[in-house]
């Protein structure tokens, strides 16, 4: 899978454990509706400790383990403060995770669903995102991933084998190719070969998909009226 190429005009990289990606998911679905396109939804498994350190909190929200600089803590705290105020506008629940999760297994389910059908994939993504951010889904637990696939209406006959072999190889190959394609975070959009990191670029993406008429708009977190 070439990180910058697809049959779709727009590629979107997300990670289940990123709240910014969660917000971008529904806005991107709105783009699909507006422009009558199918986005190529792809997983990017963030290595958060490599750029934001790591921490674990207990059920009382007390930090019980950490490896973060004060600057990293500021960035993480602001990120959740920011995400939650936008999530509130959509009546979307975002509970702060209690640890930095490894979403590799959830992303194996993603690739498995992706090769079946668009409906299967979208149902899977909607389900795991919503439940993960309500702390009702463990993305590291393959049995929960398989259940989520079933809930999404996907066939799961050979999922375990796929996750251990072909799926893992495909996911690792994709993750390995992303950095040198200039893709390092989520949400990242690739439209007509242009890489855009963050949902603040949605006005520009809209402008590109509309035919680049007039001047490109500036960045903005547009307050979209999302359709159900």
């Amino acid at each position: 899978m070439n990180p910058l190429q697809s049959d779709s005009r727009l590629i979107l990289y997300l990670d289940v454990k990123s709240p910014y990606a969660y917000l971008a998911k529904d806005e991107a679905k709105e783009l699909e509706r507006m422009f009558d396109i199918n986005i190529d939804w792809r997983p990017l498994t963030l290595n958060i400790p490599s750029f934001l350190g790591s921490a674990r909190v207990n059920e009382h929200r007390e930090v019980v383990e950490e490896n973060r600089t004060p600057r990293q803590w500021q960035a993480v705290r602001y990120a959740y403060y920011d995400v939650k105020r936008y999530a509130r506008l959509r009546e979307t629940l975002v509970y702060g995770p209690r640890k930095v999760w490894d979403t590799t297994n959830a992303h194996l389910g993603w690739l498995y669903a992706r090769q079946q059908s668009r409906n299967c994939l979208m149902n899977y993504l909607d389900d795991v995102y919503e439940r993960f951010w309500k702390r009702d889904f463990d993305p590291e637990d393959l049995s929960q991933v398989e259940s989520a696939l079933q809930n999404a209406g996907c066939e799961t006959g050979d999922f375990s084998e796929y996750a251990a072999t072909e799926g893992r190889d495909r996911l690792e190959a994709l993750q390995g190719a992303l950095p040198e394609a200039g893709i390092f975070g989520v949400p990242t959009f690739v439209v007509d070969g242009e890489v855009l990191f963050g949902r603040e670029h949605l006005p520009r993406i809209n402008w590109i998909l509309s035919g680049r008429n007039g001047k490109s708009p500036d960045v903005a977190y547009e307050l979209l009226e999302l359709t159900a």
Partner: peptide, 27 residues
Amino acid sequence: QEIYSVPTFLVEGERFIGRQHFPMIRS
């Protein structure tokens, strides 16, 4: 006010890092 980065906007005690937040500030 917990400002640590630039550009940061402070509006009614609320922080916004980056100019992408104008729609929310307007609202």
